[in-house]
């Protein structure tokens, strides 16, 4: 029948890396990776990506490492005064890439925390990435402790810039709320359990499990909203108490979004319902993002099967 295409076949995943400390003050990933580096029984290849930022417990030293994996930076010639992260991105690209090449790692996980109330969020570039979509679906089905919303972060036409784009495919885990520089036991345990679930999926995929087609809901970015600011660039209003902590809840026209330090509340002026995320994320003040706007959509994902390297019978 129409639409019942045979599952798509993809190669098994043999080289899988897990990055922690891409932002050095997002502690769940930092401490999980440090733990796995000592405990060698972990199935994938863990590494700390921004070593200097981890040491100083800051997001980055020179520039945001997770915005540095573009062709421009990866192909740039080394200079003496370049930010630490540019050189580090090249090293990571050498070890786990090169980005877009056949030698690149098959999969990379990237572990993050946010100060926003995003729960256990799964982040990938777009719904067109078949294998991560299946992985997310598997996690949603098998990790039932919390709902795991899927956030598709790439705007149309945008070049991929994140660390996991070095590998052939990837997924970022974004757990919150957790302050920068703080390690909370519950989020540490959740991230660990999510990773175990994701690695189970890889194991099943590699051993020939057929994953049927499915439909799923995901949140796709449509834009970003900055704080209201004074002419000198300082913010003039806070996230409204009614919006604070309401990540993934519908936001309707005329709903309050900002609370100035004095004066009247500011309402959302869009024409239709959107879904916000990264509400009041500490690291996004400097990026001029008070929250990200998303639309909720349903996607039909084709089936998936391992492409066996031995000849088919």
């Amino acid at each position: 029948a129409a639409g019942m295409a045979a599952p798509r076949r993809l190669k098994p995943l043999h080289h899988v890396a897990v990055s922690g400390g891409t932002h050095g003050n997002e502690m769940s990933g930092v401490y999980l990776v440090k733990h796995w580096l000592r405990d060698r029984s972990f199935a994938a290849t863990p590494f700390l990506s921004n070593l200097r930022a981890v040491e100083k417990c800051v997001r980055y030293v020179g520039r945001d490492l997770n915005r540095t994996f573009t062709a421009e930076f990866l192909s740039s010639a080394e200079t003496e005064d370049e930010p630490y992260e540019v050189g580090r991105a090249r090293e990571i690209n050498q070890t786990y890439g090169p980005k877009g090449s056949a030698q690149a790692f098959d999969f990379m996980f990237d572990l993050h925390n946010t100060t926003a109330n995003m729960g256990t969020c799964l982040i990938m570039d777009s719904e067109e990435s078949l294998l991560p979509m299946h992985m997310c679906h598997y996690i949603q089905t098998h990790y039932t402790q919390s709902s795991c919303p899927i956030y598709l972060y790439k705007l149309p036409g945008e070049e991929s810039y994140s660390i996991d784009s070095v590998a052939k495919t990837g997924l970022a885990l974004e757990l919150g709320p957790q302050p920068q520089g703080v390690l909370k036991a519950n989020l540490f345990a959740e991230m660990r359990a999510l990773m175990a679930c994701a690695l189970d999926f890889i194991e099943l995929f590699n051993t020939g499990t057929v994953f049927p087609a499915f439909k799923t809901e995901a949140y796709k970015i449509t834009g970003r909203v900055d704080y209201p600011r004074y002419p000198d660039g300082e913010i003039s209003a806070m996230v409204h108490p009614k919006l604070q902590d309401k990540d993934f809840f519908p936001l309707n026209p005329e709903d309050p979004i900002f609370q100035p330090f004095s004066g009247e509340e500011i309402l959302y002026e869009g024409d239709s319902t959107i879904y916000p995320a990264f509400i009041n994320e500490a690291a996004y003040y400097e990026k001029k993002v008070a929250f990200v706007k998303m639309e909720k959509r349903t996607f039909s994902i084709p089936g998936l099967h391992t492409l066996s390297l031995s000849p088919s019978p």
């Binding site: 302050p179 920068q180 996230v239 003040y285």
Partner: peptide, 13 residues
């Protein structure tokens, strides 16, 4: 508190 570093929350303020 509680408020993360680098964040301003309306309720805490």
């Amino acid at each position: 508190g509680p408020q993360p570093q680098g964040v301003v929350r309306a309720d805490i303020l």
